[in-house]
Amino acid sequence: MQPDDLTRVLAPKLGENLLGVEAFEGMAGRVRFRREAALDLFRAVRDDLSFAHLSMVGGIDWVDHREVFYVAWSDSARQYVLLSTDVPATDAHVETASAVWPSANWHERETWELVDITFDHHPDLRHLLTPDGYAFHPLLRSFKIHEPEELEVKTRHV
């Protein structure tokens, strides 16, 4: 399956919410979409493109915005596809995929607590890896494990 095939199926369903399909080495392609169309895209990808198996949901903190990416696998095409959407850092939320793929449940819980991206209508958005009530989101770039001066090697021969 090539990026063109993805575009052909997804473009009519999503319209302008599909921001583009790029080639990605080792995958069917990388689909960029607007978060408003998340559920439509998930359904289209699962039902029309037969990517029945959601493998991974993750988030990246790009400081000015955040990115949510999904990796899904199709048994018939024997390929992965990467779906990604950008959400603003101030209002980081996206529709949950767990209604479409139940496997998204824990991945989204993890993404929520580590990268601070809220998944709307998630059935069970609780802390998974960090303790309940943990106030930080460790995978944000603003969360430092070392202070920079600790990280630097001590100066020698002063």
């Binding site: 493998s55 991974m56 993750g58 990246i60 903190d61 496997s103 991945h107 995978l139």
Partner: peptide, 28 residues
């Protein structure tokens, strides 16, 4: 199936590393 997603922003450190653990899904 374990998966890794590594973002290289041109520095000597990876910008973001995300792993997918198979058992994570199996336990879920």
């Amino acid at each position: 199936e374990a998966q890794a997603y590594v973002v290289n922003e041109g520095t000597e450190h990876p910008y973001r590393v995300k792993f997918r653990s198979p058992i994570f899904a199996n336990l879920s």
